[in-house]
């Protein structure tokens, strides 16, 4: 009992340490805006992969549509700002609602017709590409030219002259995403999702309404990604149909898979490591030899998947157990 308590204390301390590091990073990089942008990008993928864990890791639905919801959120919040001078602080919530509404519209028939596994994945992937074409052709809102957000340097319009505030916004979102994950894990819905993620038919036989469970997970995920989209648009300062990026959506899902499906902090870990490596390589050698950083990144990805199919998080679990449990055992022996 006491050992369990000790364990919890060490875990909380580790999280606190990580949080402190995360908070002071921009002060260290402060002078170099580019590095802050890179770190914020890594955090963005961390947020998206952590949110993906709700639908992909827990519920086992391989969703490849994250950038569809991100783009919808970005376009809602951005268009409201450009057209009606509407503050993005509210706009991003509306963006989340639009994304969640769209997800419902797509999710109800998808789950109704029992589209699963690969076909669910491919449908959501096609969805991103469909939205890209729709927004390119819809000249009133999108169109082939970037639309820049006005009001540079104003708090009301969420347009800052430095990337540091966006970094903290992303960090806040990450905490929310982790909290939501943690919370769902503890509730009845979380257990239902885990059950249907393991074996959908068995879960159905046990009386779980799988369809409504999956819909709840999908709405939760798409709403928060839509909110992220609002910040994304403001960070880059423009909206463009290229936000609907099928390739990047696949990347988010891959981070979730490689991190360890169903482990709350796994996707975050994968994002920090893989996207971190990728952005670092892009910044250091991307200018000299185009494409080389992607070669290295993909080789790392393949090696990780081959040798740790259960996820990067399991490496850390092993290390953690080795370091902390053995000490716990030794203490016991001494006593």
């Amino acid at each position: 009992m006491e050992q369990k308590k000790n364990n919890q204390v060490t875990k909380s301390l580790l999280w606190l340490l990580l949080l402190i590091i995360a908070v002071i990073i921009p002060w260290i990089l402060g002078s170099n805006q580019y590095s802050v942008l890179l770190v914020t990008t890594v955090l963005l993928y961390g947020v998206m992969a952590t949110l993906w864990n709700i639908i992909g890791g827990l519920a086992g639905q391989l969703d490849l549509g994250s950038f569809a919801y991100l783009g919808l959120g970005a376009f809602t919040s951005g268009t409201l700002l450009i057209r009606y001078n509407f503050t993005p602080w509210m706009g991003m919530i509306l963006g989340g609602l639009v994304a969640a509404g769209f997800a419902l519209l797509i999710g109800i028939p998808l789950f109704r017709f029992r589209i699963r596994e690969v076909w669910y994945a491919l449908t959501t992937c096609a969805l991103v590409e469909i939205l890209k074409v729709v927004f390119t052709m819809w000249e009133k809102v999108g169109g082939p030219v970037e639309r820049y957000l006005p009001h540079y340097g104003s708090l009301y319009h969420m347009r800052f002259s430095s990337y540091i505030p966006y970094y903290y916004l992303m960090l806040g979102l990450l905490l929310i995403a982790l909290g939501v994950n943690y919370r769902i894990n503890k509730t009845r819905l979380g257990y239902y999702l885990k059950a249907l993620g393991e074996d959908e038919i068995a879960a159905e036989v046990l009386g779980i309404d799988t369809r409504s469970c999956k819909l709840k997970a999908l709405v939760c995920y798409s709403f928060l990604i839509g909110v992220t989209g609002g910040i994304y648009a403001n960070m880059y300062g423009y909206i463009h149909p290229s936000f609907f990026d099928g390739q990047e959506s696949i990347k988010v899902a891959i981070l979730g898979i490689v991190g360890g499906r169903g482990i709350t902090y796994g996707p975050l870990l994968a994002a920090l490591l893989l996207v971190g490596i990728q952005e670092f390589l892009r910044a250091s050698i991307g200018g000299d030899v185009s494409g080389l950083y992607l070669v290295i990144y993909s080789v790392i990805l393949i090696v990780v998947v081959l040798f740790r199919p259960k996820g990067i998080a399991t490496i850390f679990q092993d290390v953690y157990q080795r370091v902390f449990s053995r000490r716990g055992v030794e203490k016991k022996n001494v006593q």
């Binding site: 891959i254 898979i257 992607l294 993909s298 393949i302």
Partner: peptide, 10 residues
Amino acid sequence: IAITVGLMTF
């Protein structure tokens, strides 16, 4: 899927 996506990126 993760393996083939890695191959695709490569």
